Computed example of a mutant assay.
Amino acid sequence: MTEAEVYTAEDLSLGHFLYALMSAFPLFFLPVFFSLVINISQTNVASQSLLATHLRWQRNSITGLMPLLIIGYFIPQLWLSIPVFTFALIWFSYRIFKGWLGLNDNLSMY
């Protein structure tokens, strides 16, 4: 699909809700876990729809965050683990903002 394709009207409120949960990650990452569970449970979304591309983007963002946090946790030197945590949170924030803005503009995410 190209960005120029026109999508039919579909309810994107689930995507907005999951991005809102993901953006609440400073709250002990519990909202991120809930958004992943809700995201994975969405099996009735058409695979080529706009919402499906955003659900995939969100899953990849969350599953990409987890290894970075685990690596940062197991680095014994604090001066090394803090930059890993900082990079992980900045990268995750970027993915949330880019995805949510793309959803607002009706752009698919790859």
Rank of each mutant, 00 (worst) to 15 (best):
V32K: 10
L30M: 08
L36K: 08
L103Q: 09
H16W: 13
F34N: 02
S81P: 15
L50A: 04
P76W: 03
F17T: 15
I82M: 14
V37F: 06
Y110G: 14
L65C: 09
N60H: 08
D11S: 03
Y73E: 15
P83A: 01
M66F: 12
L65Y: 02
F92P: 15
A4R: 15
W100F: 11
L18W: 13
H54A: 05
F97E: 01
A24P: 05
G99W: 00
L21Q: 13
E5M: 13
T86F: 13
G72L: 10
L101S: 10
F97L: 08
A9M: 09
S41Y: 05
Q42M: 14
S61M: 02
R59A: 12
F28K: 08
G72T: 04
N39W: 07
L51F: 00
M66S: 14
G64D: 03
P26L: 00
D11M: 10
Q77N: 05
F97T: 03
I71D: 01
L68Y: 06
K98A: 11
P83E: 05
L68W: 12
L68G: 13
A9Q: 14
S23A: 07
L51E: 03
V45N: 00
L78N: 13
L107Y: 12
N60D: 05
N44T: 09
L65G: 04
F74T: 06
T86P: 02
P67H: 03
Q42N: 05
E5L: 11
I40P: 00
Y110W: 10
A52M: 13
V32H: 03
S81M: 04
L50K: 09
P83V: 03
P26Y: 00
L51W: 06
A4T: 13
L80C: 07
L69K: 08
L21T: 13
L50R: 09
A24G: 02
Q77E: 14
R95Q: 14
N104P: 02
F28G: 11
F17R: 15
P83T: 01
L55S: 01
N106S: 05
T86C: 13
T2R: 05
L69S: 11
D105V: 02
L89R: 07
V84F: 12
T43Y: 00
S108K: 00
A88Y: 05
L27A: 08
Y7N: 10
P31H: 00
R56W: 11
L36S: 12
F97H: 10
H16Q: 15
Y19G: 13
V6L: 10
F74Q: 13
W91N: 14
L78A: 14
S81V: 01
I38T: 00
L30C: 02
L89E: 04
F28N: 06
F74L: 11
Y110M: 03
N39E: 01
T53L: 11
N60E: 05
M109Y: 05
N39P: 00
M109C: 06
F85G: 12
L30N: 01
E3V: 04
T2L: 09
V32A: 04
S35N: 09
N106K: 15
A24K: 10
S47A: 12
K98F: 01
G72A: 07
G15A: 07
S35G: 09
H54E: 01
I62E: 08
F34G: 10
M22H: 00
T53N: 06
Q42L: 02
L68K: 12
Q48C: 02
A24V: 07
T53Y: 13
G15N: 12
R56G: 11
R59K: 15
A52W: 06
